[in-house]
Amino acid sequence: MAVVALLATGIPVQAQDTGQKAPAIESVDQAVAKLVEEDVVSGAVILVSEDGKVVHLSAIGDANIDAHKPMTPDTMFAIASMTKPITATALMTLVEEGKVNLDDPVSKYIPEFANVKLDGKPLDKPITLRQVLTHTSGLGGDQRVVKSLENTGKVLAERPLRSVPGTKWEYSPGLNVAGRVIEVASGKPYAEYLQETIFTPLKMNDTTFKPTDEQKPRIATLYAKDKDSGELKENSSWIGNVETDPYPNPSAGLYSTARDLQRFYQMMLNGGFLGDAKILSRDSVKELTRLQTGDIVTGFTPGNGWGLGYCIVQQPQGVTAALSPGSFGHGGAFGTQSWADPVKGRIFLLLVQRSNLGNSDGSDLRKEFQNAAAAALNE
């Protein structure tokens, strides 16, 4: 744990790209280092920005324990469901172009959805794109892509619904439906469309569904807590596994870095642009990040609602207490977290690789990190 001890003293690490020392806040490193030392995670990359400037960036612990390979600021992570907001944002670019309407029936793009049934009976009203983006479509079950998005759309259309669309929130493969709609409306493969529309303009050079041979050595190893020994052991998952699941997954497939994700969320905080890159209009950003689910109770922590692909903090409390009402973001299956606070102009990024963490959105790791960062910035 030499790396942890070093960083807990507040000694900054090297920032990616510039070769300059990255800023570090000692109390933030200490909060995360404590949980690394307790073997909650093998290590972490954490980033905090305020008003468009990175005010904290550090890498703590190991990317691979057995190899004694330290985390670095440019370590790459499987971000799992943090992919969902990016997919929704890509779809919104097609809404701006007039190629898609959020209240269109899904069947306009995936004809098989015209035959969706609930309890064996046809629906009174068709499932809409807005509903698949807010997890209120009635769809449920696993979020894997089977063979292709075209095929997956057909498979999901045959899956029995769990509730009347628009009446209940249930975490779902709805963003995979959105990914297929992107293909149909744009005439391009989903991953290619994201690359051209978001990643290249924002210079998110380490955000990909398929890491290159040059990038692979920078990927953090996934760990899980052994139930008997309590030790962290290497683990595997279909999420991000390009061998078993080679098809780009709009719900869970991306790899990325702290710097890349900061650029994406800063674009959102800016109202759709970053530097010379304009991704969306301000109105589209507002639509993505406004409450869409009304009084419907949503997951994964109290006081939340749902926007279009984004979780929205409505009444900050508990793990979200450091955020302002209207903050938006998403977590991932392996403990990753990304949250943007439009009131205070802040971004909080926590990148780790840990399975069986439980509800990572409600984790102590997230809470301690965000609280320490907010306390330091509020001084």
Rank of each mutant, 00 (worst) to 15 (best):
H56P: 04
A24T: 12
V145Y: 02
S229R: 01
R130V: 05
H135F: 05
N359A: 07
P189E: 06
K117Q: 15
Q131C: 12
D364V: 13
F199W: 01
F273A: 15
D104C: 00
Q314V: 10
L47T: 12
L133H: 04
E38I: 00
A80V: 13
K233P: 10
T83L: 11
Q262C: 10
E243T: 13
V164P: 08
D245W: 09
P122T: 04
E97H: 11
D119I: 10
A375G: 08
E112A: 14
G272H: 14
K233M: 15
K278S: 13
G331D: 12
V54S: 04
K84S: 04
Q195C: 05
V352Q: 08
V132R: 02
G294F: 06
T298G: 02
T221Q: 15
G303E: 11
P316M: 11
G138R: 05
A277W: 11
R282W: 10
R259Q: 13
E287I: 10
R282Y: 08
T298Q: 08
A220Y: 08
R159H: 06
S148P: 09
P160V: 05
K210S: 04
A80I: 09
T134S: 15
A220W: 00
A178V: 13
A78Y: 04
A59K: 03
K125S: 14
G329C: 12
K216W: 01
D51K: 13
L149K: 00
A67S: 11
E112I: 07
I60M: 01
A374Q: 02
I46Q: 01
A78S: 11
I198D: 07
I182N: 00
L7Y: 01
F369N: 06
K108W: 04
V145W: 02
P173H: 05
L194H: 08
L288S: 04
E37Y: 02
D17A: 04
D39P: 08
P173V: 07
A88G: 11
Q317E: 14
K225Y: 04
I312R: 04
T244M: 04
S355I: 05
I239Y: 06
V352D: 03
T87N: 00
G299S: 13
D245Y: 11
D142W: 12
P173M: 01
L35Y: 08
R159D: 03
R346N: 09
